[in-house]
Amino acid sequence: MATLRYDTPASLQTHKRRVRAAITLFYFGQGLAFASWASRIPLIKSQLALSDAQLGTVLLMLPIGQLLTMPLSGKLVSKFGSHSLLPIMALLYGINLLAIAFAANGIQLGILLFLFGVIGNMCNISVNTQGVLGENIYQKPIMASFHGAWSLAGFTGALIGLLTTNLHLSTAQHFLLIFVLLIINVFVNRSYLAPPSENLTMKRSFSFKPDRILISLGVVGFCSMATEGAMFDWSGVYFHDIVQSPEQLVTLGYASFMIMMAIGRFIGDFVLQRLGRQRTLQVSGLLMFTGMMLSVAFPNIYMATVGFMMVGIGVACNIPTVYSVAGKHPTIPSGMAIAMVSTVSYLGFLMGPPLIGYIAEVFSLRFSFALFSFFGLLMFIMSSKLKVFKV
């Protein structure tokens, strides 16, 4: 169990920047580990001689591991505290990443990815609970910047992956480097994490039962993550098949979306303070709707890029805001509340991409994108009606 350096309200306020830095670096570490794995997928596929279908099946093990352990993660965080669980799980996440490099076949890789999903989910619930506690210390929105650190880690991990590949380092050497960085990160920052809130003991006695607020927050998260998942998996295909961009510019849509999402997260806290949660989510929903419809109505490289940039800004603050609100539930522990909302939200990320493919098979990819734009409109309507966003 981590011994915390600052465990009184006075010391927390005095050193709150150090606490915020520690939480930020744990977000960064988790994003770096995941991006490092993603950067090596093509090479691992080739080394294990996996077909496209086999790789798809193997990759599915990761979200299955995440979804199956959502309730368990919430209970563990509530019982032991995110400050205790996060450092342990962050180390296990690094060990699991390193083990992936030594998978000898698809079955071993599938088992390791399932565990990667299980441990990654526990890291996710723990670090987002820390994000909520960090906001409580600052008494203002800072959750978006934490998620911005995760996005920045994604770029960093991709660049390190590109560099290690060009230097002809093996996957094991690459992942060992990341593991060492994760170890340093954990031991430097574990004592500076935020302590549990004072009313945690009172909340622990509550028998967890999802209420209307958490389900509604989950639906808002579902709309955002379904759109996000569609952009992650289908932006390249859309630019290739519909926009018919030059081969060297096929990734332009994905890159523009990712860059604007990262920027949106770093400026998101400022926007939330100025506009408030409700208006920010309303604008976000309209940007998602307008951006996707723009790329559908005018499928040329210029308008589609602008549309994808709008979607990137639109999705940037939604999940941080939803998790922040869930973590402040008056009667349910933060970890369990976030786990509930995360479960519903993540279903959107999991179901969105294949759903686009099925719709495109029957109608067209443009029709799929047009249909998915209405998730933004639904999010606008729900955020307008939910009283919890008005606070």
Results as ranks from 00 to 15, higher is better:
151 S>G: 03
177 L>M: 15
148 G>S: 06
179 F>A: 12
152 L>N: 04
137 I>G: 01
152 L>H: 01
158 A>M: 12
182 L>S: 12
141 P>Y: 07
173 Q>Y: 13
148 G>H: 03
157 G>V: 11
175 F>A: 09
179 F>D: 10
167 L>P: 12
155 F>M: 10
153 A>T: 01
140 K>N: 02
139 Q>V: 04
138 Y>G: 01
158 A>D: 06
175 F>P: 05
165 T>N: 13
154 G>W: 00
142 I>Q: 01
178 I>V: 15
178 I>C: 05
181 L>W: 12
178 I>E: 07
136 N>I: 00
145 S>D: 04
146 F>L: 08
171 T>G: 03
150 W>C: 05
139 Q>T: 08
158 A>K: 08
154 G>Q: 06
152 L>P: 02
167 L>M: 15
167 L>K: 12
161 G>A: 08
166 N>I: 07
140 K>P: 09
142 I>T: 01
159 L>F: 14
137 I>N: 00
165 T>P: 03
135 E>L: 03
145 S>L: 04
166 N>V: 11
176 L>M: 15
167 L>D: 07
151 S>T: 03
162 L>Q: 10
176 L>G: 14
146 F>W: 04
137 I>T: 01
163 L>Q: 08
136 N>S: 07
153 A>M: 06
164 T>D: 13
169 L>Q: 13
141 P>H: 06
177 L>R: 05
155 F>S: 09
150 W>Q: 05
172 A>C: 11
181 L>S: 12
149 A>C: 04
175 F>G: 08
150 W>Y: 14
170 S>C: 10
143 M>V: 04
156 T>K: 04
138 Y>I: 02
171 T>N: 14
151 S>F: 04
166 N>S: 15
174 H>Q: 08
177 L>C: 13
149 A>L: 06
176 L>C: 14
172 A>W: 14
150 W>P: 01
138 Y>C: 00
161 G>V: 03
163 L>Y: 14
153 A>D: 02
167 L>W: 14
147 H>R: 05
135 E>R: 00
184 I>R: 12
155 F>C: 06
147 H>Q: 03
160 I>L: 15
179 F>V: 08
141 P>T: 07
181 L>C: 14
163 L>P: 08
163 L>H: 11
